[in-house]
């Protein structure tokens, strides 16, 4: 536990003592702000029109009309920025040679991996927290339901955690950061849209492809529906990614 935290601290410091964390967080917030602003602006327009139509006014729901699409948009941004956060985690250690230092120290490979995972989660949490402050403005001027918003953020966090695990896995495969980022990006995109293939597939394949898709499990969460199945999906995705990383690193010692 202590060792894991030592590694996490070192990585967090590395994120924030270089421009990486600042650039990623800033770009993320600018995009999140843009999407949020557009959605609120559109919602306002709809609300104006609805003012003349009592039936329509009843259908207005800020959770449905602003937060749910916002979370969907943000998931795409996470898909773009997380590979950039994770690409250096193992690639750089390998390239610079510090990997040899870590693996000859009396700490386990598992602790090293979890420490790095934790550090990336920390940056993710910081991004979502700052975005949360931004979107919190709607609570000052409107009355959205709180629970679905929190569940939506939880969904983003879990999805981000799964993304990070995939990123760490690819980072452990290569000493080239660009290669790690591109592989992560491609894999995430594939899993995100896997449910598209489910439309044309039949039978068992349909449900398998649907189950594997990131989007499929994200829909419910953006609408405030907390389903254990989705939580288990993201948790097991993250676990599997980290487990593969562990196997890759261990097997390299035996070659």
């Amino acid at each position: 536990m202590k060792n894991m935290w030592s590694i996490a601290k070192k990585e967090i410091r590395a994120y924030f003592s270089s421009p990486i964390a600042y650039v990623v967080i800033t770009v993320f917030l600018v995009l999140a702000g843009f999407f949020f602003y557009s959605l609120v602006w559109w919602f306002n327009n709809q609300a104006m029109e609805a003012a003349q139509n009592p039936y329509y006014a009843q259908q207005m729901n800020i959770n449905q009309m602003v937060f749910s699409p916002l979370f969907h948009n943000i998931s795409i941004i996470l898909l773009l920025v997380i590979p950039l956060l994770t690409m250096r985690l193992f690639s750089e250690e390998k390239k610079v040679g510090t990997e040899e230092l870590l693996f000859t120290s009396p700490i386990s490979v598992g602790q090293i991996i979890l420490g790095k995972f934790l550090a990336a989660l920390f940056v993710l949490a910081a991004m979502l927290l700052l975005m949360g402050l931004l979107t919190g403005l709607t609570f000052a001027y409107g009355n959205p339901e709180l629970a679905p918003v929190i569940i939506g953020y939880l969904g983003l966090f879990l999805m981000g955690a799964a993304f990070i695990a995939v990123g760490i896995f690819f980072s452990s495969l290569t000493e080239n950061q660009i290669v790690a980022a591109v592989l992560t990006f491609g894999t995430l995109l594939l899993f995100l849209v896997m449910n598209w293939a489910a439309y044309s597939a039949g039978g068992a394949w349909k449900s398998v492809l649907n189950y594997l898709s990131f989007f499929q499990h994200f829909d419910g969460l953006t609408q405030g529906m907390l389903d254990t199945q989705d939580l288990v999906y993201y948790a097991s995705f993250a676990f599997f990614g980290l487990f593969l990383t562990h196997s890759v690193i261990q097997s390299r010692r035996w070659r």
Partner: peptide, 24 residues
């Protein structure tokens, strides 16, 4: 090791403090 395992962005003392942690 043959290639000295250094983190370029750390200070000398900061690096050594990190090493004390991972060396228990």
């Amino acid at each position: 090791p043959e290639t000295v395992p250094l983190y370029a962005d750390m200070t000398v003392v900061g690096y050594l403090e990190f090493i004390t942690e991972i060396k228990q």
